[in-house]
């Protein structure tokens, strides 16, 4: 399904250009007459990519978030026709301040005002990454991927919603743990998270039984080539700095 393999460029005065590439197929052989391949018209067959490249992009569009999503994540927000199926299936939609489909709508206008609203929304932090939306999206818009990019953009521009501080803290603590130990060291990670958020007493009741059940250790795990992972993080950071002077 999806787009046809080829599109035929049509001239105003050569309207007879057949839009279809296969006609006349002989039975009994899996090869088809070669003449069937070429259209009889003055039209030329173009691949969809080439066809797309004929369109001009507006200069302003190049710097929009929508353009960035397309470039970085191969997510085209123009594909979204606002059916709302993503929102309908989203497990976190009830908690969100802006519905997932509306996040895409905010990006479609390409106006700075709307982009800001998307980047400052709580929704981008409440996305669980369960992939339900993209699994059902009739237009195959990769919304989880868009959310990833929006979150990172929100952090880079320092506009992340303050109500999401604890979520950001959790993610940062988690990554920090990996950077230091190569693997996630839960005790250290949770300690880090609590320090970052001040949620010192949350889940305190669970901790002792966790130890009792052998589910949490006080010492970092061995192995995991922590130096190597540390170097990976360093190289990724350096590369990021290089690309954003």
């Amino acid at each position: 399904m999806g787009q046809p393999d080829t599109v035929t460029q049509m001239h105003d005065t050569a309207p007879d250009a057949p839009r279809v590439r296969c006609f006349a197929v002989k039975k009994g052989t899996n090869r088809r007459p070669i003449g069937a391949y070429f259209s009889q018209s003055e039209g030329r067959t173009l691949t969809p990519e080439k066809y797309m490249s004929c369109h001009h992009e507006s200069p302003s569009a190049r710097h929009s978030l929508a353009a960035r999503l397309k470039e970085v994540g191969e997510v085209d927000v123009a594909d979204c026709y606002q059916c709302g199926k993503c929102t309908a299936g989203c497990p976190a939609a009830e908690e969100m301040d802006v519905a997932p489909s509306q996040i895409l709508r905010l990006l479609q206008t390409e106006s700075p005002k709307h982009e800001k609203r998307a980047l400052e929304s709580m929704s981008i932090w409440l996305c669980i990454g369960c992939e339900t939306c993209v699994t059902r999206c009739p237009q195959e818009v990769d919304l989880p991927r868009a959310m990833d990019i929006l979150r990172q953009e929100s952090l880079a521009r320092n506009v992340a919603n303050r109500a999401a501080d604890d979520i950001v803290a959790f993610h940062k603590a988690f990554l920090h743990s990996i950077e230091r130990s190569g693997r996630v060291f839960e005790f250290g990670m949770i300690g880090d998270y609590k320090l970052r958020t001040g949620h010192l007493f949350q889940d305190l009741g669970a901790a002792p039984s966790m130890f009792l059940k052998g589910k949490m250790s006080l010492l970092p795990h061995g192995g995991g080539s922590k130096r190597e992972v540390g170097r990976m993080f360093a190289r990724a950071r350096a590369a990021k700095k290089e690309s954003q002077p």
Partner: peptide, 8 residues
């Protein structure tokens, strides 16, 4: 109008 699961 569902290019993923149906017809566009």
């Amino acid at each position: 109008r569902d290019r993923l699961k149906g017809v566009p």
